[in-house]
Design a binder for these strands. Sequence first.
DNA 1: GGTTCATACCTAGCAGCACAAGGTAGAGGA
DNA 2: TCCTCTACCTTGTGCTGCTAGGTATGAACC
Lengths: 120, 120
Amino acid sequence: MRIDKDLVAASATPLVLGILADGDLYGYAILKRVGELSGGRMQWTDGMLYPLLHRLERLGHVSSSWGTSEAGRRRKHYAITATGRAALADRHAQWSVVADTLRQVWESAPRPATVAEVWA
Amino acid sequence: MRIDKDLVAASATPLVLGILADGDLYGYAILKRVGELSGGRMQWTDGMLYPLLHRLERLGHVSSSWGTSEAGRRRKHYAITATGRAALADRHAQWSVVADTLRQVWESAPRPATVAEVWA
DNA sequence: GGTTCATACCTAGCAGCACAAGGTAGAGGA
DNA sequence: TCCTCTACCTTGTGCTGCTAGGTATGAACC
């Protein structure tokens, strides 16, 4: 499943903050966690995650600290802050508004034809 | 309610296509319809809608034709195409994937204890 | 007649962000 | 030795919403 970039952009911040709200994690593990949670249907690139984490840190939504794995590899651990939790709640509310609106058009509209039907 | 621009970007295409799937409409009316459907919580600017409509037309997802209102004002009517319906179905599927994933993190995240739980 | 508001369309310039592609580096296995 | 996985980072490109403008008509009010 290919997710359009604008939808990735819209969900990236709430997803990262939501994952971190469940417990501290490091970058690479967040990448794997997104794959898990979506059943493999979402596959983020690290090229979008790391800049996002830096941005969230600059905004004060997360804090970071360097650590080391048992294997001796360096890891940068991220934790959500109080500001981050507030931002998460705000994003959640926004998402609900948009999701409610979209549900209305999808319910009222005749069922969209599937790709298979169009190409049949 | 202020909706972040990335969430606007993610929902704009499916919303317009969904609205047009329910019946032909002209640009300005789409703007008003979004406000209605969202209970006034979403307020699009025309500066984002018109370029979006032109883009959707260029992609073949909608078609347009000039008309005139009873009052004599010129209006550009838009209609969804078969390709547009396919794109809508695709966006709908993508949205579901992301929404399912987000629901998981929001459910798993710790939340304040309810009064009932505190007294249990 | 003049002013203001709502309707109805359009565009240019700016800023933000995902993505592709590339780099650095250590650990473990074939 | 070489490859893969882990684990982090940055640069350049392209797309897109937003701000801020512009154009034009009709209706309501003074």
